[in-house]
């Protein structure tokens, strides 16, 4: 069984994501968005990029790519599903996760390391982390501003797993880089098997990259895949 890394036209983080998944012992496989079968996958990752050029709304066209029927089917089971950056936007557009991601508050593309604090370990992305743990991970997005109609989340049963914070873990307005509601950087569904985040943990998995803090998130994901199999 493999971890399917979905590739849309315009996806550009699939190889980094594949590398990170393999590093934690998973067997990543790139899957083209027009494929229609994920029966060989025990987990799914939607990586970052600009799927379908981000036309109409980010994630709006990708959400109807043929492979998404399979992603939706698996997300409804216990299979771990992760969306990173553009992948998170696709999961929100598909209604698999609640809320939406819109232009950053200051209308600037943000490409820099940020710090996030683990708010919950009840997800495939944070199971091996500890609540309050502060991680330094790069953010790379223009539409990373998480908004939701209701407080705190659109789907009442979704929950926050990561929040933007300053380097010592405090939630301050200055530490919220894009204006996200409740400083939300990542959320999970009620069962925790589907998670999405805006920062790029695959870009922080080795010290040579400036931070290895993203590795615990991939280790969580790998442990969650093993737990489902067991």
């Amino acid at each position: 069984m493999t971890t399917a890394v979905i590739v849309f036209p315009g996806t550009n983080c699939e190889q980094d994501t594949e590398y990170a998944l393999n590093m934690v012992g998973l067997d990543a496989e790139l899957v083209w968005h027009r494929d229609t079968d994920l029966s060989g996958a025990d987990s799914v990752v939607l990586p970052g990029g600009f799927a379908h050029g981000d036309y109409l709304r980010t994630g709006a066209i990708a959400r109807f790519s043929p492979i998404m029927k399979e992603v939706e089917r698996l997300a409804a089971t216990d299979v771990p599903v992760l969306g990173i950056c553009n992948g998170f936007q696709v999961l929100c557009e598909a209604g698999i996760l609640g809320g939406a991601l819109v232009a950053n508050q200051d209308l600037k593309f943000i490409c820099k390391p940020v710090t996030v604090r683990v708010a919950s370990t009840d997800s495939v992305l944070t199971a091996a982390a500890t609540v309050g743990q502060v991680l330094r991970i790069p953010l790379n997005s223009y539409e990373g501003n998480y908004i939701t109609q209701d407080s705190p989340l659109q789907n009442g049963d979704d929950h926050v797993i990561l929040r933007y914070c300053d380097t010592d873990g405090s939630l301050t307005a200055a530490a919220n880089p894009n204006g996200s509601a409740h400083a939300i950087a990542g959320i999970a569904n009620s069962r925790g098997n589907v998670a999405g985040l805006m920062p790029h943990p695959e870009r922080a998995i080795e010290s040579i990259l400036g931070s290895a803090d993203g590795r615990v998130l991939f280790e969580s994901f790998a442990a969650s895949v093993s737990a489902v199999k067991a």
């Binding site: 819109v102 950053n104 200051d106 209308l107 908004i147 204006g179």
Partner: peptide, 14 residues
């Protein structure tokens, strides 16, 4: 249109 009351950074900046 964006629903009223939701964050609209382009509108606010303009």
């Amino acid at each position: 249109d964006r629903k009223p009351g939701l964050s609209d950074p382009e509108g606010a900046t303009t």
